[in-house]
Design a binder for these strands. Sequence first.
DNA 1: GTGCCTTTGTGAAGCGGTGCACAAAGTGAG
DNA 2: CTCACTTTGTGCACCGCTTCACAAAGGCAC
Lengths: 258, 258
Amino acid sequence: MRPGAYRPSVPLEHRLVTRRIPQARDRGIPDATVARLPLYLRALNGLSERATLTVSSEDLAAAAGVNSAKLRKDLSHLGSYGTRGVGYDVQYLIYQISRELGLTQDWAVAIVGVGNLGRALANYGGFASRGFRIAGLLDADPAVVGDQIAGLVVEHTDALETVIADRSVSIVVIATPAAAAQHVCDRVTAVGVTSILNFAPVVLNVPDGVDVRKVDLSIELQILAFHEQRKASGGPIMAEEWPDGVEPVNERSIGASS
Amino acid sequence: MRPGAYRPSVPLEHRLVTRRIPQARDRGIPDATVARLPLYLRALNGLSERATLTVSSEDLAAAAGVNSAKLRKDLSHLGSYGTRGVGYDVQYLIYQISRELGLTQDWAVAIVGVGNLGRALANYGGFASRGFRIAGLLDADPAVVGDQIAGLVVEHTDALETVIADRSVSIVVIATPAAAAQHVCDRVTAVGVTSILNFAPVVLNVPDGVDVRKVDLSIELQILAFHEQRKASGGPIMAEEWPDGVEPVNERSIGASS
DNA sequence: GTGCCTTTGTGAAGCGGTGCACAAAGTGAG
DNA sequence: CTCACTTTGTGCACCGCTTCACAAAGGCAC
């Protein structure tokens, strides 16, 4: 249904002229803002499904789990897309954020490594709906090659370069074991890929200009454990500094050499 | 109250999302440092496997992919564990960081939602080696209940509270579909769980004192797309502000939406 | 039109993190 | 012992993000 129920009785020829945003887009959007835009987008999509026409910064911020002032400042980096006294038009804002994030175009994604994680990613519905099209699934294990997952046939990593070139893949997801990640990374950057999403627990070495984002499942757990420990005991264990049998070598060597 | 026409359609004004851990400030370790400690730990484990005894901040920083001054400042928050002129004792530092993160104790983790992602997590080797013991796998789907994964039998979510209490689960991983996540979250916080790792693409509303960390697979891709777009075109599409057929309701749609 | 109400957009202050640069501390040679 | 060298730990300046607070902008009632 068209969102047309909201009818402001307002002289509109006036606004059609003044509403032009000449160059409010000073391409300097802070990283912190970019990281939150997908959050706003999801909240807006939720509102859209409930046929909400406009939303205030206060409500949208609550739905996204952020401060309302922060939300307004974030959106102001994209331009003046709100209406004072009313709020933001949901559909309009969805489009503006999508465009800013580049989700209005089609992105071909290849997933390398089709273990459980690779399968989970291939089946994740949140990708296709946001302009991410999985163009290839690759794995080095012959036992997996040929399997059909999410409508795609798994190919051998030998074809990695071919797949990337032939299908205009611009984003590669690495979901391989840690030992294979750097090798895959080298190969894909060699053929011009500049955006990598890495799930392997290693620090990837990449040429300049290549953007790597890392998702590490165990790091998040460790951060949780830190906070949990704090909550439980009011501080880390103060019992002993060093357990028996494991001593710093330079202390032991000092005692032995003097 | 506000007699405004744009009341939030969702009653969430009383449920505030709070991730702050007040006690984390007391002892003074910055959040940014805590988030990097697991990184250092992994780099140190790599060095340890190669029988390296000591490491300089320069080398360790390179292995972890950070600045050496940052690394030294991070470690200084834990204490003075280095030796000037020599560097850090690898084993000693591993122990100190592990202790600070709480990895020297045993953490019982329950994973709710045993789809592909839940399976990937259950089989992920990086957990057990760091003190995280998977104490339960739960799913609402009867077709999955009873399956054996990573040595555990999947149980029905009906037993969620029982599993948490009986096995002293302190960290819950939510890997369910988005629609089920909040319900699971409510149940586990109700029985005292205060640490949640959420993979579902929703903003969880939790009581004060509960720590939620979120891993969102699609958000990372969207951030990559933003940067990729920047690199490719030098900026987002400048063509048009608004495509045909999708107009802001408070502009031209007035006439059309009678 | 006039006045009141709501909400945006933003200047400015505050806060936390980063990185430089260097003194302090330790090693090792002679 | 002294001297030269290495590396840590940290003071400090800088920078970017967050938050507050408020004027400006728009809607609504009459």
